[in-house]
């Protein structure tokens, strides 16, 4: 299990990186945290001729709260996000989700943006991006553009990023003040990719009914899924058993999970509905307490 040969470049600026990517196009792969790419290289499942290592572009290592967003630079490691007080205060659902990413050694190296553009549909970060209606900022030869999550993910491990484009930042819109949240995951072992994960965001009115609810799921198909009909069903409702049962059904209708050696599609479908209900209840509980931790 030794990686195949490749040529290695370590640009120190975004421009330099983009230039390398446009020169080598499909032959090149971006190396950020490397926690998904290097195993694939070691297993020789990926064979890029060129690696463009962005770890020397120090300007990409940041977290900022700006214009109603949490902006996460492409070199911000999971661990940086996990420990940042502004994340805990402003986007606690992200902090909770990031704790489910691998183990500490993985989180010390892996990046949030890298995880998103790797587009593993059972990963946690893409689901949070979808929950918060976030986007990824990319820089290419023709300039900078923001790709909303709906336009980013195509299917398993596939995005609309061009081969000559570099993802430089992930933008998570801040959840509304007082919103309750929850992130729940069923994985075979702690730290494994999700069999199913559900993120929920709920705002409540004074009577304890749902004003707005969002759900986002991982592990249930080729991309993260926002079950729109389920979300619509929730507006104005109290989270009674019958409402949650209808929501669970709507969640199960909205997804197209596949079977693999760890779980059947049927299992994933069932658990997605279960976790949606649990996550909504937990989120509502937080919303009632005013959205704090």
């Amino acid at each position: 299990m030794k990686p195949p040969r490749f040529r290695y470049f370590a640009p120190t600026s975004v421009d330099e990186a983009v230039e390398l990517l446009s020169t080598h196009a499909d032959a090149a792969k971006v190396l950020a945290g490397g926690q998904s790419l290097v195993p694939m290289l070691n297993l020789r499942l990926a064979r890029p001729e060129v690696l463009v290592d962005i770890n020397r572009i120090e300007s990409l290592s940041y977290l900022r709260v700006e214009d109603g967003h949490l902006a996460v630079g492409a070199l911000a490691r999971h661990r940086m996000v996990e420990k940042a007080p502004e994340v805990a205060a402003r986007v606690p659902v992200l902090q909770e989700a990031v704790r489910h990413v691998g183990h500490v050694q993985i989180r010390n190296r892996g990046t949030v943006t890298g995880s998103i553009v790797h587009a593993d549909p059972s990963a946690e970060m893409p689901a949070v991006l979808a929950l918060l209606d976030g986007s990824v900022r990319v820089v290419g030869p023709s300039g900078t553009r923001d790709i909303p999550w709906q336009e980013l993910f195509l299917t398993y491990f596939t995005t609309t990023l061009g081969p000559d484009e570099l993802a430089v930042e992930t933008r998570f819109p801040l959840p509304p003040a007082g919103a309750g949240w929850s992130f729940m995951e069923v994985a075979r072992r702690h730290g494994d990719f999700a069999l199913v994960a559900v993120a929920a965001l709920v705002t409540a009115d004074e009577t304890g009914r749902v004003k707005e609810a969002r759900l986002s799921l991982a592990g249930v198909g080729g991309t993260p899924v926002r079950p729109e009909r389920a979300e619509a069903l929730l507006a104005g409702q109290a989270l009674e058993d019958d409402v949650l049962a209808a929501v669970a059904d709507a969640v199960r209708e909205a997804i197209e999970p596949e079977s693999d050696i760890h779980a059947s599609a049927e299992y994933r479908r069932h658990v997605a509905g279960v976790l949606a209900g649990r996550a909504l209840r937990a989120a509502m509980e937080r919303a009632r307490r005013g959205g704090e931790g």
Partner: peptide
């Protein structure tokens, strides 16, 4: 056993919540 097999068996046996 694994969660998949177990949950399925529980569902077949009619255990509440197993679906």
């Amino acid at each position: 056993l694994d969660p998949n097999r177990l949950r399925q068996a529980l569902a077949e046996a009619g255990v509440p919540g197993a679906g």
